[in-house]
Design a protein around this nucleic acid. Sequence first.
DNA 1: GAAGATTGAGAGCTCAATCTTT
DNA 2: AAAGATTGAGCTCTCAATCTTC
Lengths: 160, 160
Amino acid sequence: MTIQTPTGHTAIGTERLSGEAAVWSALRSVQAQTDAQLDRALHRVCSIGLTEFLALLACAEAPDGEVRMNELSEAVGITQGSGSRLVVRLERAGLTERRMCEYDRRGVYTAITVHGRNVLDQAVPAYEHALQQALNRFATDERFAPLIQSLRALPDRQEV
Amino acid sequence: MTIQTPTGHTAIGTERLSGEAAVWSALRSVQAQTDAQLDRALHRVCSIGLTEFLALLACAEAPDGEVRMNELSEAVGITQGSGSRLVVRLERAGLTERRMCEYDRRGVYTAITVHGRNVLDQAVPAYEHALQQALNRFATDERFAPLIQSLRALPDRQEV
DNA sequence: GAAGATTGAGAGCTCAATCTTT
DNA sequence: AAAGATTGAGCTCTCAATCTTC
């Protein structure tokens, strides 16, 4: 993925923007920095980026470990074109393989390989750990503490 | 900026990820889609991207309407190198101008122009409106409703 | 040598065009 | 004609190297 915002970045827009827009600004900041840290952690631990991680996760959670191209792109949050190239990268790394769809010959499945599952098994704890670290860091920053608090309160209140 | 996630994208990771990580996944989805909509709205209304908007905002909120390169990059959430190129684009569009720093000749100020302020005055309401629209859309989606609710509750509880 | 800004190389993304299959 | 996947062109970003000034 190779993500933005390496610099610690303070939210802007508190003067000219409404309260909600200012919260959004803060959220963008937290989001970008955190995802950048997740990306780096994944690269460090298993040499994949955040996009690749999300793609593997989508495959692993699907029946038979396979997902169609358009579903994959949607799950990861990129366009069809980007999805196509993402799968090329994954295949080149031996993490997934292509399978043709029997009933609709336009369709292509991307299936996670055994190696892909092994990498994912390493990646998930690394991801979780890095996420906790990032959120903890923001939780001690008074500008972001309320935001983090309310995020952390969510999973207890309801399944998302 | 030219932002990701044009496709409506459902959060993944609900099986293999912890509750907090799943919330994070949902948040990433909301964040990416919303920023993409903000970016498109800004382009439509005043032909600037989200990055340019944030840069103009940072200038406008600073004393004398000027900000140093490194501050600008940090405020927008990009690296120094990207900031340098961003300012080139802004200058080319007549939205900002460079000023040398008198006391530290390494430093360069980026100052918002009159035209830049005019554009920003158009951009702010467009941004606010697009943000409300995007949040409203997510608020009616049961997967994201609790997330949006807790975001919207924030500015009332405390200044961020 | 360190700090601020710029530049070159490379990665990933978007959009639009294309090709195949339905 | 429409849908799924890929490819070409272009943009913005990162990282690392460089240049200037402190």
